[in-house]
Nucleic acid binder design. Structure first.
Lengths: 354, 354
DNA sequence: GCGTCTATAGCAACCGGTCTCTACGGTAGG
DNA sequence: CCTACCGTAGAGACCGGTTGCTATAGACGC
């Protein structure tokens, strides 16, 4: 029978003390070899490294995080990794985080504001260096208040709330904001359509209360106003940022008999659905109707016809989010960034009647 | 001047002891209120909860993980979140993990076998409950050996290596494997093409040494053999699982003047590139050439024409990976799962010459 | 030859919860 | 009236690494 705490044969991970015992030194010495920032005699270091190798030792990240205050982790909160829009931002976040020696925690919320709040709370428990929340915000007052609360709570423990692609919470709230020019992109695209001769443009995929959608529609409206036009309310359809809404919405639009020569889809996914509906109805794009999207996800290239859309610098959004949050000490005053957008002309648009 | 450790005004997070002091109880009591699995008088519990609320207390996940041996985390190692193939598996993993009360760490490797190894090592440090590695494996012997080593190392500390969409490491290696019938899907698809009358099928996107690719090609070959045919080596092009390879490969094929009536693309992304090249060359799909893909990512629906492809149960792969790994005690013997695949006929295929 | 300085290693406290064991007040049973 | 027991709360060790302070040995100066 085993005496006292005789290990069951290599079960359980080895600790610094195990390594220390084997190398004939103290735990502190092992820790110093690990850290590297302390003089350790070459011969001692060699013995310690040998012992580590023999025991197949790896540090316990939690114990380390408990001592020091940072745990070298960045949290990433997103609606749904499946959407290419989010996926590309995620890639930027992951790349930058890994370049800065941070790990990346991923959480999805499936568009549920309640889950956003719950997830951010969990990230507080994890003591992440930064908590990056991506995607449109809800204008709900209670929701905004909770987020503001989290911003302060995270700030208090040396962490940072980062909002990507959503508006700031207000002055004095300690949060980093990385936006892109949502309104400007929609304005540019709408202006392009209007000046090409399209007078009646349908807007597909308005999501009331979602900041991203509100801003896009706002650019759409401003472009009309500037040219002395007013969009027809009947051509603006409420829905979601999904392919299926694009499909249903376009069908509904066609069935209603409303006149339009162009469709402005809230996102590229919505455009994809709309294109399918138009194809099924034998409406030719761009001969009969022009279609534009928003986001410029890779899919846009593969749609038929290749989609004219608004480019959003996805990966740079992700990278900037991590960079600004982690280096907020060195670059103060730059905690609100707005990246530019631009339209990309492809094959889904044409002057009407040509 | 502040006396001794006078806090700088709410700086630093509050601890169980802070809560205990405010509630006039001991730290243990606070911990028990937190845990819930121990009798605490209702009045005491109320006082503690009140104190927590007032101090805006949240537990420190690291301290908790240090005591107990599990940290309630699942690690997810993937080539590139951007690919829809991975994104959907990621969604399955995330959903199941969150359903099982686990957080999800995301790491990307950009197809670099070295980074896979480095990342798995980091996950060992994090003491994740399971480490899920997704995507084809490299047949490199040293690589396999390292993975086997990790499997044992993780097993020793109660964690689990999970391989998704890659072959087992060998008998006796403590790892969970969730595969899908890669070879069978390719066999079924190739058989479908051959029996429809396609005799000369080009294979685009062979990646030598990558298990996924090898298996698909193997199904492709077996289908030929069964019908007494032999694929023409000149029609099998080496490359990568990327859209750009599909584009370049198809162009090269057309330029070579080789005869073929169908293209079997290694993945849907490869098919997307091939379709573009064919369209540019005014080769009609499916009238002149049929094209099929593999994976059935959502993109397949939006390609033109809608792509005939092999369906892979992405999300279920992810969910099963988490489920099997976390419940391996309860369901022993089921640590190797092979999910089925099936072909999905859409508009990119037709009998030749019709 | 003695004192001091420097290089290196050890001791022990600490990070923040959790958990086991012990203690204590009160009630019920003998 | 005393003891046994139940319900509840506290003390303190522990998880595994880090780190400030201390200790010791050898080197060097005088």
């Amino acid at each position: 029978m085993a005496k006292k705490t005789e290990p069951v044969m290599g079960n359980d991970a080895s600790t610094v003390r195990d390594v220390a015992a084997r190398a004939g030194v103290s735990a502190s010495t092992v820790s110093r070899v690990l850290g590297g920032t302390y003089p350790v005699a070459a011969s001692t270091r060699a013995r310690v490294l040998k012992a580590m190798r023999e025991l197949d030792y790896v540090v316990n990240a939690h114990a380390r995080a408990l001592g020091g205050s940072t745990n070298k982790t960045v949290a990433f909160v997103v609606d749904d990794v499946t959407g290419p829009f989010y996926a590309h931002i995620a890639r930027g976040v992951e790349e930058q985080a890994s370049a800065e020696g941070r790990l990346c925690m991923l959480c999805t919320t499936h568009g549920d504001p309640q889950r956003v709040l719950a997830v951010v709370e969990t990230m507080r428990e994890q003591r992440a260096d930064a908590v990056i929340v991506v995607g449109g915000a809800w204008e709900d007052k209670a929701y905004q208040d909770r987020m503001t609360h989290f911003a302060h709570a995270l700030d208090r423990v040396g962490s940072r709330l980062v909002l990507v692609g959503r508006p700031p919470l207000g002055p004095g709230v300690p949060a980093t904001v990385v936006e892109y020019d949502n309104e400007g992109g929609a304005f540019a695209m709408t202006t392009h359509l209007l000046t090409s001769g399209h007078q009646r443009i349908a807007y597909l995929g308005r999501v009331p209360g979602l900041s991203t959608s509100d801003q896009r529609l706002s650019g759409f409206r401003r472009a009309h106003e500037l040219l002395g036009l007013a969009p027809d309310p009947k051509l603006i359809l409420d829905g979601t940022f999904s392919r299926s809404h694009g499909y249903q919405g376009a069908r509904q639009l066609l069935a209603s008999g409303a006149e339009f020569t162009a469709v402005f889809a809230g996102t590229d996914m919505v455009a994809a659905g709309a294109l399918q509906a138009l194809r099924e109805a034998r409406v030719s794009v761009p001969d009969d109707v022009s279609v534009v999207g928003y986001d410029d996800v890779p899919l846009a290239l593969d749609l038929f016809p290749a989609l004219t859309t608004v480019n959003v610098p996805h990966e740079e959004l992700g990278r900037a989010a991590v960079r600004l949050a982690l280096h907020r000490e060195e670059l103060p005053g730059s905690q609100h960034l707005v990246l530019g957008t631009h339209i990309v002309l492809r094959d889904s648009t044409r002057r009407p009647g040509h």
